[in-house]
Measured scan of single mutants.
Amino acid sequence: MPGGGPEMDDYMETLKDEEDALWENVECNRHMLSRYINPAKLTPYLRQCKVIDEQDEDEVLNAPMLPSKINRAGRLLDILHTKGQRGYVVFLESLEFYYPELYKLVTGKEPTRRFSTIVVEEGHEGLTHFLMNEVIKLQQQMKAKDLQRCELLARLRQLEDEKKQMTLTRVELLTFQERYYKMKEERDSYNDELVKVKDDNYNLAMRYAQLSEEKNMAVMRSRDLQLEIDQLKHRLNKMEEECKLERNQSLKLKNDIENRPKKEQVLELERENEMLKTKNQELQSIIQAGKRSLPDSDKAILDILEHDRKEALEDRQELVNRIYNLQEEARQAEELRDKYLEEKEDLELKCSTLGKDCEMYKHRMNTVMLQLEEVERERDQAFHSRDEAQTQYSQCLIEKDKYRKQIRELEEKNDEMRIEMVRREACIVNLESKLRRLSKDSNNLDQSLPRNLPVTIISQDFGDASPRTNGQEADDSSTSEESPEDSKYFLPYHPPQRRMNLKGIQLQRAKS
């Protein structure tokens, strides 16, 4: 015994090295194993092979420090690593049964499904019991997946119906949107047309105001020219009257000059006056001389005659003075006559000038009245044309509004008919989907599995289990394997941990 101590140590070291070499393959693929292994699927088989106990299973599945599946799978690998070579062998058998691809990844061999460990530990009855539990578990999982698949199909059909409904609603909204954009385009076109009409109206108003201003300026210029013409006519008439007055005065002077006595007659009258003065002096001298030589009687007679002569001279002087006064009065009367005649001529000139001015103003008033009548006639014609244009424009607008209203009513009726057609199509689609759903539900009910399987069917299934373990590994792997896509769409199922009653199965096998 003492001599065998070193050999035992060498043997233990060799086993430990082999164990480390075995687990080295697992550690190399630890990331892939932790990512894809579900500990809840492996722990029943590991407990059946007595590699882990209930406490280890509870620690792996329910520990609060292991929230994710990767953490739980890593903890399970750590626990199996502590179990040595047996933990490695049982772990590979569980991978061979549940995850053939991972088994091939770790060992590089094809899975054979021999279950040597569980046969050694529990015997064939334990293997049968384990396989029966796994089959029931798989059936329950398949039923749950079928239910989930039916629910998802129903949800899918519902979503398809909602999608069709949303599509129809979208078509309806597109119809309304198209109608909205069309009405918006019509409104924009009408606004552009309105702005264009306003611009045209403004341009016409500006043109009309400009023409009116030009016409008023032309009328004012015409009036100024007419006033200048009238003033020139007035000056012409005044000059004609002055010329006529000057002509009359010149004719009067000419007549006075023609009626003036001649120079010879004046000289002859002056000679006669001198001769008479000479004779008068001679007679006076004779009379003076006679007075001195005459007697007293003759002197008395001469005195009487002288007195008579003096009286006659006085009378004559009075007559001469009277004649002079009369001549002066006649001259003054002639001057007054000439003055009055001049005033008369001036008044006649003024009267004729005023008459011509009156005629001029009368003509001017007639011209202004004619212009006013023409302006009123043009204004009435413009008003009439404007009223006709406004009436025609309003009539066109009324007809346009009428046609637009008819078009809008027809478009609304068309839209309502399209919407009604879309709604009826939606109703038809809904009815078809309901009919299809009812038909599929009836087919699913016919094809669904019963909840409680008979014992004979279970025994028959387990009677055929042994050949399947040898020759149909691919079928078992397809039913027991969970793909990543299934984990996305289906909830994980945790079967209840219970042991099955095998009395009925044993009785059935005894009868057979």
Rank of each mutant, 00 (worst) to 15 (best):
G5M: 14
G5V: 12
P6C: 11
E7I: 08
M8S: 12
M8I: 13
D9C: 12
D10E: 14
D10L: 07
Y11C: 08
M12W: 04
E13N: 11
K16V: 09
D17F: 11
E18A: 11
E19N: 11
D20A: 09
E24F: 07
C28N: 06
C28H: 04
N29A: 03
N29K: 06
R30T: 00
R30P: 04
L33T: 03
L33C: 03
S34H: 02
Y36G: 06
N38Q: 09
A40V: 01
A40S: 02
L42K: 02
L46Y: 13
R47T: 07
C49E: 15
C49A: 13
K50E: 10
K50Q: 11
V51A: 10
V51F: 04
I52V: 11
D53T: 10
E54G: 09
D56P: 09
D56S: 08
D58V: 06
V60R: 05
V60L: 01
N62T: 14
L66V: 02
L66Q: 04
P67Q: 12
K69M: 06
K69A: 04
I70M: 14
N71I: 09
N71F: 04
A73D: 00
G74V: 12
R75P: 00
R75M: 03
L76C: 01
L77F: 06
L77E: 01
D78W: 03
I79K: 01
H81S: 10
T82K: 11
K83I: 02
K83A: 10
Q85R: 12
Q85C: 12
Q85G: 10
Q85Y: 14
Q85F: 07
R86Y: 01
Y88M: 01
Y88E: 03
V89K: 05
F91V: 02
F91A: 00
Y98R: 04
E101A: 04
K104A: 08
L105M: 00
V106L: 03
G108M: 14
K109Q: 00
E110D: 04
E110V: 03
P111M: 00
R113P: 03
F115R: 12
S116T: 11
S116H: 06
T117R: 15
I118L: 04
V119H: 15
E121N: 14
E122C: 05
G123Q: 15
G126M: 15
L127P: 07
L127H: 14
T128Q: 07
T128P: 12
F130V: 15
L131N: 10
E134L: 11
V135A: 02
I136T: 09
K137V: 05
K137I: 04
L138Q: 14
L138I: 12
Q139M: 13
Q139K: 14
Q140F: 05
Q140L: 14
M142D: 08
M142Y: 14
K143D: 08
A144H: 09
K145I: 10
K145Q: 09
K145T: 09
D146S: 11
D146R: 05
D146V: 07
D146K: 11
D146F: 08
D146T: 12
